[in-house]
């Protein structure tokens, strides 16, 4: 009977050690986030800010009196939106083209796509800075957007190509067979079928852009994005209003995650 028990453990009930292990992982992952949230409600006004001295909404009110912080957040959103739209456009065209056509040097292009992904960001940052200096584009929003497009486009292509690998070109032939010209075929058949891939690629590009520090640091000029602003202020400890904005951002991203999990992208799960 002991052997029976050993060879066929009850898989429906979690083991105590397993449970503890899982809990500690989640603690490790979520404790820092919890601390940020907690500190955003911390009434402590003097350094070190970390000691908790009562509950307050003060930082949230103060946050809206801090135009520099708010405008940095605005910049981050602007750069993220612009670079996402551009990289999704470029990435979609590239992925669809690479899926559809056989051409010389395709595998080389495939391999080259990995370089911006694996290259240390600091090197990519320096390279971009050199290029911008070379063609004398003044550093600012434009260079930030271009740089973010440069590093997020390969990710969009990867996401879409994974999605497209299961995509049968016969659907497009069927559409044309039924009288749809090329534009209608793309609009009614290709686009709806690859849209989930485009959306997840876009989401990835957006999140990559929103928290980028290293590359942005090289090419921002005088424009401050939110992560850069935080980096700047951190020299004197994490300011409580930064915690407040972080908490709001957390709320926003959690909302997006919940939304996507609860069926906005259901068609992706279906096929």
């Amino acid at each position: 009977m002991i052997f029976m028990h050993n060879t066929r453990p009850d898989r429906t009930r979690p083991h105590l050690i397993g449970t503890l292990f899982a809990c500690s992982i989640y603690l490790f992952l979520f404790l820092p986030i919890f601390v940020v949230i907690l500190n955003s409600f911390n009434a402590n006004k003097t350094k070190p800010y970390a000691t908790f001295k009562g509950f307050t909404f003060e930082w949230y009110i103060k946050l809206f009196d801090n135009p520099a912080l708010l405008s940095s957040f605005g910049n981050t959103l602007l750069v993220a939106f612009a670079s996402t739209v551009l990289s999704v456009l470029i990435g979609t065209l590239a992925a669809v083209g690479m899926h559809r056509y056989k051409f010389k040097g395709k595998s080389a292009i495939d391999a080259l796509l990995y370089i911006p992904v694996v290259i240390p960001e600091i090197i990519l940052g320096i390279s971009l800075l050199s290029v911008f200096a070379w063609v004398s584009i003044p550093r600012g929003l434009i260079t930030l957007i271009l740089s973010h497009v440069a590093f997020s486009t390969p990710f969009v292509i990867f996401t879409l190509r994974a999605r497209l690998s299961g995509y049968d070109l016969t659907f497009e032939e069927a559409a044309m067979d039924l009288g749809a010209n090329r534009i209608k075929t793309f609009a009614y058949v290709t686009l709806p079928l690859i849209l989930p891939g485009i959306l997840s690629g876009g989401l990835l590009a957006f999140t990559l852009s929103i928290d980028d520090v290293i590359i942005s640091y090289f090419v921002n000029g005088t424009v401050k994005t939110f992560p850069l602003k935080v980096m700047e202020s951190i020299k004197s400890g994490v300011a409580p209003d930064v915690n407040a904005l972080s908490t709001l951002i957390l709320l926003g991203t959690t909302g997006i995650v919940l939304l996507t999990q609860s069926g906005l992208f259901k068609s992706e799960a279906k096929s």
Partner: peptide
Amino acid sequence: EPFDRNINTVFQSYALFPHMSIYDNIAFG
């Protein structure tokens, strides 16, 4: 062009559009 020919095909894999209802599939042409 294929879309200018009054010829239709039944594909071996059927190639029914997965994102359209049966009605919309048939109505497509």
